[in-house]
């Protein structure tokens, strides 16, 4: 039983089944790639459905309400109903909008959000592309999402959107730096940027124990990266209505939403992989552990959102550059010195 619970084993069984029907092993590889891509997209779209429901339930429970409970058992189909509604909505384009930029922005935002899923180790060996620069790839891809926000903000021909777009650029660029530096400590300890190696290095000790400061810095910067409260200045409902999304309706708006929740999942997965030992854990199969940890991280982010007020833009910038950046740098120095001392004694 233990053998087939792992995701990789399931893939091997699938591969064996496919091998019976397809003669060429290359064809089998292509089929497996397609299945992998399909499952990643399934995960992303399911994520949005599940996380929106979870968010609404979490927020409701924290405010002592019951949340959605009408559509489907316990309201579980509420998000599906919402999706149907969004698809049926009229697609309104503001007059004077830069048509192509405006239409491209939500799609372009979705691409990096989906692309980062390639390097996520869902289970032992269950990783689409175990790049040797996995961490670097994640950072590079996720920083791409700045541009679509600015595009959406500029092309909407709306002042609220423009202010929101400008805010995104300032916020995401300045929080990228401490985020990268906080991850750097992990890379130093693991000695690799390969996701599977980093997880394997946490077999006995999770890196959260060795790098608590890095974890705190990562969680804060990740919240800022995905524009969630208390760093949701981009949307900042009470200030700039909905920021870059103000002029979007229907499915275009839903794509923003989808990307937002895909990003939420992505940063939770990275936190799990880098700090919480990935799929490592006793008794249960690896992927169950993995999703439990990811779920815990997602809950943490939701918890933040429904507790804290929003920061102001100047406070946000000074917090990023004056507090988080020095803290992350200090963490790297301490990690470096610590590693030398450790090597010296052992």
């Amino acid at each position: 039983m233990q053998e087939i619970t792992g995701l990789f084993k399931i893939a091997e069984i699938l591969r064996a089944i496919l091998g019976r029907f397809l003669s060429d092993p290359q064809l089998v590889d292509i089929c497996m790639s397609l299945i992998n891509i399909g499952s990643i997209f399934t995960i992303i779209s399911l994520t949005a459905v599940v996380l929106v429901y979870a968010e609404r339930k979490v927020s409701a429970f924290m405010q002592r309400r019951s949340g959605p409970n009408r559509v489907g058992p316990g309201g579980t189909l509420q998000t599906v109903a919402d999706m149907v509604k969004l698809m049926a909505k009229e697609d309104i384009m503001p007059a004077g909008a830069d048509k192509w930029m405006w239409m491209l922005a939500p799609i372009l935002l979705f691409i990096p959000a989906a692309a980062v899923f390639v390097v996520f180790p869902f289970d032992n060996k269950a990783i689409f592309a175990d790049l040797n620069i996995g961490v670097f790839y994640f950072i590079a891809m996720s920083s791409q999402s700045v541009l679509p926000f600015l595009m959406a903000g500029w092309a909407s021909n709306n002042k609220y959107s423009l202010v929101g777009g400008m805010r995104t650029v300032a916020q995401m660029l300045s929080y990228e730096v401490p985020m990268v530096l906080s991850i750097l400590g992990i890379v130093m300890l693991a000695g690799s940027m390969r996701m599977s190696t980093i997880v394997a290095a946490q077999q006995h000790t999770w890196f959260i124990l060795l790098q608590p400061i890095a974890f705190v810095v990562y969680v804060i910067t990740a919240t800022a990266e995905i524009n969630r409260a208390p760093f949701d200045l981009v949307e900042g409902e009470s200030e700039i209505v909905a920021g870059p999304f103000t002029e979007y309706t229907g499915m275009r708006w839903a794509l923003f939403f989808l990307a937002e929740y895909a990003n939420l999942l992505a940063v939770s997965v990275i936190a799990t992989t880098l700090f919480l030992g990935g799929w490592n854990g006793p008794w249960l199969p690896g992927w169950v552990w993995f999703f439990l940890k990811v779920g815990g991280m997602v809950f943490l982010f939701m918890w933040f959102r429904w507790t804290f007020p929003r920061l102001r833009i100047d406070q946000l910038m000074s917090f990023g550059w004056k507090v988080l950046l020095p803290l992350a740098l200090l963490n790297i120095i301490v990690t470096g010195i610590g590693m030398y001392i450790y090597e010296f004694f052992s």
């Binding site: 927020s59 924290m62 405010q63 002592r64 309400r65 409260a229 208390p230 949701d232 900042g236 409902e237 009470s238 429904w306 507790t307 804290f308 007020p309 929003r310």
Partner: peptide, 16 residues
């Protein structure tokens, strides 16, 4: 005030 500053739980508590 709470919801204007982005803390919607504060609003729910106040209204409750």
């Amino acid at each position: 005030l709470a919801i204007d500053l982005g803390a919607s739980t504060g609003m729910m508590f106040g209204f409750r």
